[in-house]
């Protein structure tokens, strides 16, 4: 499943690239000091005039081998540049997703076991507001409130903190708090609604009544019997949401100047650094496919009826 998707995504990327106007040798073409035959030789050397499928195969194999060229701007290999930034992005994304799940699971479940109670109404309204608030605006509001008004948290993320031990950890937690909260609460708001409607779907089923009737505590009934089954559709929706998480990541990284691949992408675009842009888009695509795979595996764990032979 993962391999065809990756091939498909790479095909789309390549098509976009091939359709895009502009020629890597445009500068040479306008430069009168470069004779036409030199340009032709260069084109032949890099295979620019080969048929499309040949170029695609060559491009794809070099992408897979990690040979992504080097950055026009910083004169470093693209894969080095990305690998250097990737851990920060994954760290912030992972923490945000965890926060989202930690917020959504209990709130969504509590809403669903007492539908239309005061708690449910407040939670649903907040969730609705939460996912209608775009991340770039929440980020600005957080900066205004926590950094400027209260002056509690730094609003610029630094990768190089000259501290050690607990102090280092504390500084990291402080600077990561806002990006993680912005992203996590946005994810959490959408997830809360998924969890609520999924739990509502199962809570009225007969086997829940059976569990109650045989004397299980309410806690065990809800957590082990209802929530576990409700999670199956939720995992699907989370998998569908994954491409969206990267959208949020790019924006939050840009607002808080987190040195991850999202902000690298923006600066590369502003600097016309094509190899870096292509590399990052490809990495994002790989991450989407990877997380979809994880969701598929989670499925098997949650639902023993599914087997992967």
């Amino acid at each position: 499943m993962a391999v065809p998707v990756l091939a498909g995504i790479s095909l789309i990327l390549f098509t976009i690239l091939a359709l895009a106007p502009g020629d890597p040798f445009e500068e040479l073409a306008t430069n009168p000091n470069v004779p036409a035959e030199v340009r032709m030789n260069l084109r032949a050397k890099f295979g620019l005039d080969d048929p499309v499928h040949v170029r695609y195969v060559r491009w794809f194999t070099s992408m897979m081998r990690g040979d992504w060229g080097f950055s026009f701007v910083s004169r470093v290999d693209v894969d080095d540049l990305i690998l250097q930034r990737l851990p920060t992005t994954l760290w912030v994304l992972g923490a945000a997703q965890l926060l989202g799940i930690l917020v959504a699971l209990p709130i969504g479940t509590l809403s669903a076991i007492r539908p239309y109670s005061v708690f449910d109404q407040v939670a649903t309204t907040l969730a609705f507001i939460g996912f209608s608030l775009p991340t770039f605006f929440t980020g600005i509001l957080f900066i205004l409130f926590f950094s400027i008004y209260l002056d509690w948290l730094p609003f610029i993320y630094r990768a190089d903190i000259n501290e050690t031990g607990w102090r280092w950890l504390w500084e990291h937690a402080r600077q990561a708090a806002m990006p993680v909260a912005v992203l996590g609460l946005f994810q959490g708001a959408a997830l809360t609604r998924f969890v609520r409607s999924a739990v509502l779907d199962v809570i009225r089923l007969d086997y829940i009544n059976t569990a109650r009737a045989k004397g299980l505590s309410e806690r065990v009934t809800v957590v082990k019997h209802a929530v576990r089954n409700a999670l199956i559709p939720v995992v699907t929706l989370v998998a569908l949401q994954i491409p969206g998480i990267f959208t949020g990541a790019v924006i939050t990284e840009q607002i808080f100047r987190v040195p991850g691949i999202g902000s690298l992408l923006i600066s590369a675009i502003l600097a016309n650094d094509t190899p870096v842009i292509m590399g990052i888009t490809f990495v994002f695509s790989c991450l989407v496919v990877l997380f979809n795979l994880v969701a598929d595996l989670l499925y098997g764990w949650l639902d023993p009826r599914i087997s992967y032979r």
Partner: peptide
């Protein structure tokens, strides 16, 4: 399914970047 698993914003940025001037 393939389009659903595209990273939307990076792709959006890429396309806007490549085609804007034309």
């Amino acid at each position: 399914d393939l389009f659903l698993s595209l990273p939307q914003l990076p792709l959006l940025l890429l396309i806007v970047y490549l085609f804007r001037d034309t």
